[in-house]
């Protein structure tokens, strides 16, 4: 795949060319932090950030999304019959997502694209989008991607990887979609691949924070589940769910109907395993009614159930958002290490 050099002087012009055939989104600073937004004509993505507050998962998995619609008007022929809504899946590109968010998409895809069922909303949006990553040369103290199956120059899930080289970007096309985007932007000046390799090695060396995951697969699920440390880990948790919304790999959702007058929609909304309602039975019985059970579910899902189910490592890319945004300083790194070194014999007295 080709590697091109994009002079920053040609950046705006290239994006302008892209805007003809793609709807463009990118990081924009608002209210003190960066988040992804649709870019207006002539608006440039702002790359002066370490990472965005929320991940880019909402491009394929919006916080709220209309799935179906219905009419309750009994004079209509099709009343009470669910209909698919018309969706726009025209070509779009996200410019400037971090490689961790792209890797997260590939993990989440395993949930929404299975042999038995395919979620058309997730997959159609995924297929319509060209993902242009921005490599990380300045990691945050909470970044631990290199030990979470990812990295600051990780390519999995991206169509193009950009690296900032001062007065220019180096852009590496990683897929056919990526090549098409570079051509559409008319970025053609060939670049030296070795520069990117050197920067990648430097960036990886800068990630100082790590987790150990090598023992997780070997542990018995029920041993970890009954470990004595869960009450202690959950003690400070207020079940706010921030970790799950900020997480690029959290995919849980709710389905709700909303009716106004005689018309209504069936929606898919982000949900959180931190909420007791998430699992509450109609009888009042709740399999995860206690806070500790919910906190344990979150970490067991990411660090054990997922590991066993897919054999693709942990369901975490090391972006550190949950650590930075947790109001009570719960740190997935220390929990991962605790689980990784847990021996039931040591605990039973």
């Amino acid at each position: 795949m080709k590697i091109v050099k994009i002079n920053k002087k040609n950046w705006a012009e290239g994006l302008d060319s892209l805007a003809g055939s793609y709807s463009l989104s990118g990081p924009v600073k608002e209210n003190g932090y960066h988040n992804f937004k649709k870019l207006n004509k002539g608006e440039l993505p702002d790359f002066d950030f370490l990472n965005t507050k929320l991940s880019s998962k909402s491009f394929v998995f919006p916080q709220s999304e209309v799935m179906l619609e219905y009419s309750l008007d009994e004079t209509a022929d099709d009343h009470h019959i669910m209909k698919e809504v018309k969706k726009d899946y025209s070509k779009r590109a996200v410019v400037g997502m971090r490689p961790c968010d792209a890797k997260a998409l590939m993990l989440v895809k395993m949930n929404f694209d299975t042999a038995d069922y395919q979620d058309p909303y997730w997959l159609n949006a995924f297929n319509a989008t060209t993902f242009v990553g921005l490599a990380c040369d300045n990691p945050e103290s909470t970044c631990f991607c290199t030990s979470a199956g990812c990295g600051p120059y990780h390519e999995d899930g991206l169509d193009v990887l950009l690296s900032d080289a001062g007065d220019h970007y180096i852009a590496k096309a990683l897929t056919q979609k990526g090549e098409e985007l570079l051509s559409a932007a008319k970025w053609q000046e060939s670049a030296d691949a070795s520069v990117m390799d050197k920067k990648k090695a430097e960036a990886e060396a800068q990630i100082a924070s790590t987790v150990k995951t090598d023992q997780l697969k070997k542990k018995a699920t029920l041993d970890l589940h009954s470990a004595s440390f869960w009450d202690d880990i959950a003690f400070a948790c207020i079940n706010c769910g921030t970790c799950t919304y900020a997480c690029p790999t959290c995919w849980c959702f709710d389905i709700q109907d909303e009716t106004k007058g005689n018309k209504g929609i069936r929606m898919k909304n982000w949900d959180t395993c931190m909420s007791p309602l998430f699992t509450l039975h109609t009888t009042g019985h709740n399999p995860r009614g206690d806070k500790t059970q919910r906190v344990r579910q979150r970490f067991m899902h990411k660090l054990k159930y997922f590991v066993d189910k897919y054999d693709k490592g942990i369901m975490c890319v090391g972006c550190g958002r949950c650590i930075r945004q947790c109001p009570v300083n719960i740190d997935i790194r220390s929990i991962c290490d605790k689980m990784n070194r847990y021996e039931p014999a040591e605990q039973s007295e």
Binding site: F112, D271, Y305, D308
Partner: peptide, 24 residues
Amino acid sequence: LENRMKCGIGMCGRCNIGRELVCK
């Protein structure tokens, strides 16, 4: 088994017992 469910197709995440999804 029974558990609270939404999607019924193994995607929405709430009915799991460990790695197994009760719905799927």
